[in-house]
Each structure stands twice: as structure tokens, then as C-alpha cells.
């Protein structure tokens, strides 16, 4: 990573494009909430023999947030891993900032995945949390690994020194994603989590539309957040470089005065 900052003219994190993206994200999210909580039907079925109602009832509405959130969590961490690999090859600020930004956004969405899953699990599974459940635990491990990644990034005085070990941690942590995704198939008798609905086409009509719309809007929100976080990371770097330059200049002046004496 060099001290040459190519985006030194960047003064804040906003731009015309980011404003359009942000507005679209917020409007889309509002529409998603209306679809999820008002327009779609609750999951109610009738038992063919007893005629009793069963299903997830209104709890199903949380899935319109939970599933899109895990989708963007995967994507954010995969972007982080690709950017980390990019950094290890190219050693540029751009790759490092992208890795850092996507890791922060991914960690946030991963936390929301765990929270929404827990809230959904209480009425549907009859438990807030299940220690030992392979899907829940592997997701928690992913969250903790990326929390560790973020802690590591702050553990060094210089951001440049943190970049390389952080990139290695990201490349290791991302290996948990296929494990999470396939856990319901590989360890079916160690998880309460259901198998994939989308891959088995067990969803249709407005339910399917709302879920896909939720994924699209979550992608927009994720892109918007990463864009702003990337620009913050860049400005932080500019500030750090300016601080280093100022310190060098100060030291030069002190040495110059001492030499003159």
C-alpha cells in the first residue's frame, strides 16, 4: 500500500449515484415491509384429517427479512474474501478498503440474521436458541470470526499493518459459508432448520415475489452501505496519511532547528 492517495479530492461519502441508490433502497425497503407484513397471507393450512389449522401463521412474515439478510451476508463476506485475495496480490488501498467495508456490512447483516432467526424460532420451533444445532452454530461461528476480523483490524497502530493478517483471516473465515449453506443437507439430524425452499421450488405467487423482492432490496441496501463505508475507509486513510506527513514535517522542522544551533 502506498501513500499516494488517488482519491484525495473525496470530501464526503455522498455522491449523486449514492443518493439515488439510497433513495431507491429506502423506498424499496418500505414497499417490502408493506408486502411482508400486510399484503402477503399468513401461513395457514388445514389438516386433511382433523380439519385443524396449522402452519407458521404470522411468524412466516419474518422470513421475508431473514432469508434476504442471509443472502446478502453470504455475498458481503464473499466480496470481502475476493477483495482480501485481491489485496494479497495487488497490495492496494482499494482492495483493502473494499474488504474492510464489506466485512463490516456483512457482520451487521449476520447479526440481524441471528436475531430474526431467533425471534422466528420461538413461535415456530418452540425455542429461541438451540445450542448444538449445526446451522445456528455455524452461522454464529461466522459472525464471531468476522467480529474477530474487525477487532484485528483495530489491533494495529497502522491500518497498513492490519491489512495483511486481516486478509488471511477473511480467506479462512469465508470457508464457513459452504458449511452453513449445506449443513441442512449434510447434518439433517443435527439441525431443526428446514431445507432450502427456493431450490426445491416450494414457494409461489406473492410469497415468492415478496421473497425475491426482499433479496433485491437487500442487495441495494448492502451496496449502498458498502459504498459509503468504502468511502469512509478511504477518507480515514487520507486522514492517516496526512497525519503521518504532518508528523514527518514536524520532525524535520525540529531536526532542522537542532542542526542550526
Amino acid at each position: 500500500m502506498t501513500g499516494n492517495v488517488q482519491m484525495a479530492d473525496l470530501k464526503n461519502t455522498s455522491s449523486k449515484g449514492s443518493k439515488i441508490l439510497g433513495t431507491s433502497s429506502l423506498v424499496g425497503f418500505a414497499v417490502l415491509l408493506v408486502l411482508a407484513f400486510f399484503l402477503t397471507d399468513p401461513d395457514i393450512r388445514f389438516h386433511p384429517e382433523t380439519g385443524e389449522e396449522f402452519g407458521q401463521f404470522d411468524a412466516v412474515r419474518l422470513l421475508y427479512l431473514h432469508v434476504p439478510l442471509i443472502s446478502v451476508t453470504y455475498l458481503a463476506f464473499i466480496i470481502c474474501a475476493i477483495a482480501s485475495a485481491g489485496y494479497l496480490f495487488r497490495r492496494t488501498l482499494w482492495w483493502d478498503s473494499l474488504a474492510h467495508s464489506s466485512a463490516e456490512v456483512g457482520t451487521l447483516t449476520c447479526a440481524l440474521v441471528l436475531v430474526t432467526g431467533s425471534i422466528w424460532g420461538r413461535p415456530v420451533w418452540n425455542t429461541w436458541w438451540e445450542w448444538g444445532d449445526v446451522r445456528i452454530m455455524s452461522t454464529l461461528i461466522l459472525f464471531l470470526l468476522f467480529l474477530g476480523y474487525l477487532a484485528l483490524r483495530r489491533a494495529f497502530e497502522s491500518p497498513q499493518r492490519a491489512a495483511r493478517p486481516a486478509a488471511v483471516v477473511a480467506l479462512i473465515a469465508v470457508l464457513d459459508i459452504p458449511l452453513i449453506n449445506r449443513s441442512v443437507e449434510w447434518w439433517g439430524n443435527r439441525t431443526l432448520h428446514q431445507k432450502s425452499t427456493l431450490s426445491e421450488f416450494k414457494i409461489e405467487d406473492l410469497t415468492l415475489f415478496t421473497l425475491m423482492f426482499g433479496i433485491l432490496i437487500s442487495l441495494l441496501v448492502m451496496t449502498w452501505l458498502i459504498l459509503h463505508r468504502f468511502r469512509i475507509a478511504w477518507l480515514e486513510h487520507v486522514e492517516f496519511e496526512q497525519g503521518v506527513q504532518a508528523a514527518i514535517e514536524e520532525r524535520r522542522q525540529i531536526d532542522s532547528k537542532e542542526n542550526q544551533r
Binding site: 448444538g132 464471531l144 474477530g148 477487532a151 439430524n189 443435527r190
Partner: peptide, 30 residues
């Protein structure tokens, strides 16, 4: 920089505990 390092160590311990509980909790197997 002590706090982030401490946080990192605590997170490593947390991951180890989670792994231990996941792998060791044979009772979840049904």
C-alpha cells in the same frame, strides 16, 4: 490498542466454546 487485542482474544475463546458445544453436544443428535 489493548482493547481490540483483548476483544480478539475473547472472540477466539468464544469461537472455541461454540465449537466445543457444537461438536460435543451429542444430545442434539436425534
Amino acid at each position: 490498542k489493548l482493547l481490540p487485542k483483548l476483544a480478539g482474544v475473547l472472540l477466539l475463546i468464544a469461537v472455541a466454546i461454540v465449537l466445543f458445544k457444537t461438536l460435543g453436544n451429542a444430545s442434539l443428535f436425534f
